[in-house]
C-alpha cells in the first residue's frame, strides 16, 4: 500500500512531522507529533483487513488499559485509492523492537527479569479483561530508550467473551510458530486462555536470556518448528546468571500442557515478583 505523505498531511492536518516508520503487508506506520498527545504513531490498516478484526484490536487495547500497552488516542476510517482504511492514532514508544535488540546480544539477567515482570503486568490486565494476546514475541515487544518494555500489536488477540472471528474448525490457529503453544496452533479454541500467552512469554524470556529460540534453531521450516513445540521441551535455562528459581519459572511457563503451567497470569506475575525479590536480597 503506497501512501502519499502530502495527501496524508491533508487528511490529518493536526499532526506535525509526519514521517514513515515502517511498512508491512497489512499496514503502514507513520510517526508524528500531536499537539495534545505528543509523540504518536499513525497506523493505516489495509482495507483487505476485515473491519471487525481491526475493531477487535482497538477494543482489546482499550479494554486492557495497561501502562505496558501503548494507548490508542483516536481511530476512524479514511477514504483512499484502495478503499476505506482504518486508522489508529497511538501512543508512541520511542525505542527498538526487542527482536532487533536481541540480534546484537542477549539481555543481562536483570533486564530479562524486568522484561518478565513488565510483560506480566500487561498480561494480568489482559487476563482481567478476558483477552488473550496470542502473539507475544520479541518482535511485538518494544524496548524503550529508558529500557522499559511495552507489548504491542493486539491484531490477533482473542476476546474470550466474544464469538471467535477466526474459523474455529480450521486446522491451524493464528499464531507465530515457535512462540505459540500447541493448543493455539492446533486451534483448540476452547483451550485458549491466558496460559497460551504465558507459554509465549516463557519462550520470549528464554530467548531474551540466551539470544536463541531453540524451537527455531538451525531450521527455517515452520512445520518442523511446530513439531518441536509439540514434541520437545524447551531446554532448561542454564546461563550462569540465571537463578535456578527463574529457570524453574521458565520451564513451568513453557510446559506443553496448559494445566502444567501457572493457572493465571496473575499467579505467574506474583511468582516472578517473589523471584525478583529473592534475587535482590542476594
Amino acid at each position: 500500500m503506497n501512501v502519499d505523505i502530502d495527501w496524508l498531511r491533508g487528511e490529518f492536518p493536526k499532526l506535525r512531522n509526519l514521517a514513515k516508520l515502517s511498512q508491512g503487508g497489512q499496514k503502514v506506520v507513520f510517526t508524528a507529533l500531536d499537539p495534545q498527545h505528543g509523540h504518536v504513531v499513525l497506523k493505516l490498516i489495509h482495507p483487505s483487513q476485515a473491519q471487525e478484526s481491526v475493531e477487535r484490536e482497538r477494543l482489546a487495547v482499550d479494554q486492557v488499559k495497561s501502562a505496558r500497552v501503548p494507548r490508542i488516542f483516536d481511530y476512524g476510517l479514511v477514504s483512499t485509492q484502495v478503499g476505506p482504511c482504518y486508522w489508529f492514532l497511538e501512543e508512541r514508544v520511542t525505542g527498538e523492537p526487542l527482536n532487533e535488540v536481541l540480534r546484537r546480544a542477549p539481555l543481562p539477567m536483570s533486564e530479562v527479569l524486568k522484561l518478565g515482570v513488565q510483560m506480566l503486568e500487561a498480561l494480568v490486565k489482559a487476563e482481567e479483561a478476558n483477552i488473550v494476546h496470542r502473539d507475544v514475541k520479541p518482535a511485538n515487544i518494544m524496548m524503550s530508550v529508558d529500557r522499559d518494555f511495552s507489548l504491542l500489536d493486539f491484531g490477533i488477540a482473542r476476546h474470550l467473551t466474544l464469538a471467535a472471528l477466526t474459523d474455529v474448525s480450521a486446522r491451524w490457529g493464528k499464531c507465530t510458530p515457535g512462540y505459540a503453544p500447541p493448543e493455539q496452533f492446533r486451534n483448540v479454541q476452547t483451550e485458549i486462555d491466558s496460559r497460551a500467552d504465558l507459554f509465549a512469554l516463557g519462550v520470549t524470556l528464554y530467548e531474551a536470556a540466551t539470544g536463541v529460540n531453540p524451537f527455531w534453531k538451525d531450521t527455517g521450516d515452520q512445520l518442523e518448528v511446530l513439531r518441536r513445540v509439540e514434541k520437545t521441551v524447551l531446554p532448561r535455562l542454564e546461563t550462569a546468571a540465571a537463578q535456578p528459581e527463574f529457570a524453574d519459572f521458565i520451564s513451568t511457563l513453557t510446559q506443553r500442557r496448559r494445566d502444567h503451567r501457572p493457572k493465571t497470569a496473575f499467579e505467574a506475575h506474583t511468582w516472578l515478583l517473589e523471584i525478583v525479590s529473592e534475587s535482590q536480597k542476594r
Partner: peptide, 8 residues
C-alpha cells in the same frame, strides 16, 4: 519435570 516448581 512437569509440576515440580509449582508443587515446590
Amino acid at each position: 519435570a512437569t509440576r515440580g516448581p509449582i508443587l515446590r
